[in-house]
């Protein structure tokens, strides 16, 4: 399957990544090969096959446990104030 550079750039943008020009070739190839495997599979698997698997989701009761000390959050952050994380101004 053919994967264009345009497609690769589009998904890179979605994933917030930059792909260097010299890497583009191998990215497109890899993507193309996995999708061509998918084509083989589409031939094997009918459209009517269900993907639904069972299992009931366990749930928890609506009780509160103490949150963590704010310092532990801020300590890990690259940039922060006494109360919040800081990022460059987001334009609405």
């Amino acid at each position: 399957m053919e994967i264009t550079r345009e497609t690769a750039r589009y998904v890179a943008k979605l994933a917030k990544l930059e792909i260097a020009d010299e890497d583009m070739e191998s990215v497109c190839q890899g993507l193309g090969s996995i999708l061509s495997y998918m084509d083989d599979i589409n031939a094997t698997v009918g459209a009517d096959a269900g993907s639904v698997t069972g299992g009931d989701c366990p749930t928890r009761p609506d009780t509160v446990t103490p949150s963590m000390n704010r310092l532990m959050l801020l300590d890990n952050a690259p940039e922060h104030s006494d109360e919040t994380l800081i990022v460059p101004r987001v334009v609405e």
Binding site: T84, I86, P88, V90
Partner: peptide
Amino acid sequence: DWTETTLVD
């Protein structure tokens, strides 16, 4: 606006 930053809570 003053520091051109956004504070995250």
